[in-house]
Design a protein around this nucleic acid. Sequence first.
DNA 1: GCCAACGTTGGC
DNA 2: GCCAACGTTGGC
Length: 155
Amino acid sequence: MRYWLMKSEPEAYGIDDLARDGVTAWWGVRNYQARNFMRDQMSVGDRGFFYHSNCAEPGIVGIVEVCKLAYPDTTQFDRKHKYFDPKSTPENPRWLNVDVKLVKKTRLVSLAELRRHKELAHMRVLAKGNRLSITPVDPAEWAFITKHLLGKGIK
DNA sequence: GCCAACGTTGGC
DNA sequence: GCCAACGTTGGC
């Protein structure tokens, strides 16, 4: 059981889209390190912070749970899709995604707020120049955020 | 819109 | 295998 922080641009797919859908494939990851996290380390039941990036108010906006192990990302085979990859084949797919389901929407815990807590100083999402869309979250950091910043009712 | 940081590509 | 050029990310 691990913890994660998963970025999405709200304009592409935000927390309200997930609230509507309930479950979604975490499609569109085109970075090997992030893919490998999904492929090698994510298990059903892992939890993650849903993070809005590249927007007016970047920050954590929800909690999700991995509900399906990594499998080929269908968008890589769709010629018309933004994420089409001509070098990937169904026999040897390059890109994978897990499925996640919404556990709950949370209040916005902004990037600025995360930065204010020394307990979180080592979070990868706070590191300068960080671009990785999926990053592991230390259990102690997860506990701090859920307990102190998000309050009761979240394990 | 700017631009620093980073990942990928491709020539050699 | 090196590394410059290029494209993308993402905060501000």
